[in-house]
């Protein structure tokens, strides 16, 4: 790993000061589990790393029934998985957290970091999309909120401006009774990147039954399967023929690549298969 300078601000204010005077080759880190690997592989060579891990304002997870779940930028994947309200109200996020890497890495990797890295296979992306998560950004110019769907703009790309930091991601509480799940397919049963991930949420809100579907590792940017969701809207227990149609619609909205982990064709097929499985599992959990 090539040499770099490191700053460890104790507050957001201090962080902004550092970032305002830092050069273009600056990297911001929370857990650092992606950044350190990329640096070791000489894919990136930052001159300065700003380590956020001491900033109290970025820590913790809070839940408020009226607002929802707020996951601080430093909250690790395990902290999220172990949070009682996550298991209860955000099962798709819980599943995804438990499918992420392995138990030890989850003590370091953060949920927000996974979103910021914006790697299409990031396990946190699809569940945050189905829970309609919103990123809370803070910067010298003030605060702004960006939906996760818009926050990620491409593989390893996001909307963060220079000097801006993600403070948290907020997931509104699904309205009414709900169920969710995240299904991940890898090459083995632990510690793998998703070949395909499918997140699904069903809610019985004030109106009719609603379904939300999102996929990981098969699109350059976050995606919701709107056509598939529309096919299901209001249906209480979809039959197999409807599930087949939904799977078709799901497959139509992804555009995966071929890499050594899986071929494009397999990934497309798996979007269909896992969508059906995820829907069945959600209905079971409902």
């Amino acid at each position: 790993m090539l040499a770099f300078e490191m700053e460890r601000p104790a507050s957001l204010k201090e962080a902004f000061e550092i970032l305002s005077r830092s050069g273009p080759d600056t990297a911001v880190k929370a857990g650092g589990t992606d950044l350190l690997v990329w640096m070791k592989k000489n894919l990136v060579h930052p001159e300065l790393i700003v380590d956020l891990s001491l900033i109290e304002e970025l820590k913790g997870i809070s839940f408020d029934p009226s607002g929802g779940l707020v996951i601080g930028a430093l909250a690790t994947v395990n902290e999220v998985a172990e949070h009682p309200q996550v298991g209860k109200f955000y099962p798709a996020l819980m599943d995804a957290a438990l499918s992420h890497s392995d138990f030890v890495m989850r003590n370091k990797a953060t949920v927000v970091g996974n979103l910021c890295s914006a790697v299409p296979s990031g396990d946190m992306i699809a569940p945050c999309c189905v829970y309609e998560g919103v990123m809370h950004l803070v910067g010298p110019a003030g605060r702004r909120k960006v939906p996760v769907m818009e926050f990620i703009t491409g593989p390893r790309k996001n909307v963060l401006q220079k000097g801006e930091i993600v403070k948290s991601v907020e997931l509104p509480l699904p309205k009414g009774h709900s169920a969710g799940c995240y299904l991940k397919l890898g090459r083995r049963n632990a510690l793998d990147l998703a070949q395909v991930g499918v997140a699904c949420v069903i809610t019985d809100g004030p109106g009719e039954r609603e379904y939300r579907l999102s996929f990981g590792a098969v699109t350059p940017r976050p995606v919701r399967a709107k056509v598939a969701e529309d096919l299901l809207r209001g249906v209480v227990s979809p039959d197999e023929s409807l599930l087949d149609k939904v799977a078709e619609a799901a497959m139509a909205c992804v555009d995966p690549i071929t890499d050594v982990r899986a071929s494009r064709e397999y990934r497309i097929s798996m979007v269909g298969e896992l969508t059906k499985k995820a829907l069945r599992k959600c209905l079971e959990r409902f």
Binding site: G31, G32, T33, V37, K40, D102, V104, M105, K108
Partner: peptide, 23 residues
């Protein structure tokens, strides 16, 4: 040294960490 094997695991403040992933 990339967080994939676990041979460098330590307890850091009582939590398991792969020490190659900690500066």
């Amino acid at each position: 040294e990339e967080g994939e094997c676990g041979t460098c695991t330590v307890l850091l403040d009582g939590k398991l960490q792969k020490s190659c992933m900690v500066l």
